[in-house]
């Protein structure tokens, strides 16, 4: 007995097993009927689609268990299409499986690698071409061409320059100035301290000068959240405390992480949560980050009241609002 390990052998492609439809005309006939029924069902689906499109009014609702009150046109139009398409597919596949020959066929693979001669020939051709062009012998041409091609690639980049203006101070500044009134969003009504009970919040924007329009760009930087606490709840340094007014504190609503609106205020814990990435800020400690990915507190807006008793900004934001960027200094 030899020590050679003998592997299990490939028994070869198994013999074709006949389907019932191959041998019995009755089964073949039945499969034919099944395929035709599927195709007819598909035709019915298209008819359903047409009928739904033409005859069902768009405001018709029907009650469907599980789904509830459902728009009839949308549902039947879609179901008609689904039936029409699915049944064509199911019919074709059933046809292929039951009635078309199912003998497995063997095809040979060829090697992808070219013959050695062809490879050598190829290398020779390329070398001959290159030397005919003289690339190797004329370095001046090679280098100047390289330069030209490289430079020409700059053109499309250059042309893209006018896609937008340079950022300049845009990311650093908001519309808030000393004395800008805080007005409700929406509604644009100025707010007095007494309007807010302890535990109240208000979504605010800077008041517009007459004739001014508010753009989304403005809202994207200017949105401010007002929160009123009991003054003794604050845990702020003297400067930040002086930025509050009678327990009212104002923060930029634009998240310092990725710019979502942070307005989810929990009155009991006095935490602000950003619903996008769940950064949590502690309002009593000047929006210090206590959880989540944000790395900076929300910028605080210093507020006070004007001569008429309305809440105004005491000064502009002292730092850029919103997500970080390279030019941001702190």
């Amino acid at each position: 007995m030899s020590n050679e390990i003998e592997l299990i052998k490939d028994p070869g492609l198994p013999a074709h097993v006949h389907r019932r439809a191959d041998d019995d005309e009755k089964y073949a006939k039945r499969a034919e009927t099944q395929v035709s029924i599927l195709f007819l069902l598909s035709a019915f689906g298209t008819v359903l689609t047409i009928v739904s499109y033409v005859f069902i009014p768009t405001d018709k609702f029907i009650f469907i268990p599980v789904m509830g009150e459902t728009n009839a046109e949308q549902l039947l139009l879609g179901l008609g299409m689904a039936i029409a398409l699915f049944c064509i597919g199911a019919g074709a596949i059933h046809w292929a499986k039951t009635l078309m020959p199912d003998n497995e066929v063997i095809a040979e693979r060829h090697e992808f690698r070219s013959e050695d001669e062809d490879r050598a020939e190829f290398v020779k051709t390329v070398k001959a071409g290159a030397s005919a062009a003289g690339l190797g012998r004329r370095p001046l041409i090679k280098r100047s061409l390289g330069l030209a091609l490289g430079l020409s690639g700059l053109t499309p980049l250059l042309l893209l320059r006018d896609l937008g203006p340079l950022p300049k101070e845009n990311l650093q500044k908001t519309s808030w100035k000393a004395g800008t009134r805080l007005v409700t969003d929406p509604g644009d009504r100025p707010i007095k301290p007494a309007d807010l009970e302890v535990g109240a919040v208000a979504q605010t924007l800077p008041e517009l000068a007459p004739g001014e329009e508010r753009t989304l760009n403005n809202i994207g930087k200017d949105a401010v959240l007002l929160i009123r606490l009991r003054p003794e709840d604050f845990n702020l340094d003297a400067e930040r405390l002086s930025w509050t007014h009678e327990g009212i504190i104002a923060f930029s609503k634009i998240c310092s992480h990725m710019g979502c609106a942070v307005a989810l205020y929990e009155q009991q814990t006095k935490h602000l949560l950003c619903p996008c990435h769940q950064s949590t800020f502690d309002v009593t400690r000047a929006a210090k980050v206590i959880f989540g990915p944000a790395a900076r507190p929300l910028p605080q807006l210093a507020i006070t009241v004007d001569a008429d008793g309305y809440l105004v900004a005491k000064q502009p934001f002292t730092e850029p609002v919103g997500p970080s960027f390279w030019e941001r200094s702190s």
């Binding site: 689904a82 398409l85 699915f86 049944c87 597919g89 199911a90 596949i93």
Partner: peptide
């Protein structure tokens, strides 16, 4: 046929 199946299921 499978194309129509995918389209049908999507619809």
């Amino acid at each position: 046929g499978f194309f129509f199946i995918v389209f049908g299921v999507t619809a």
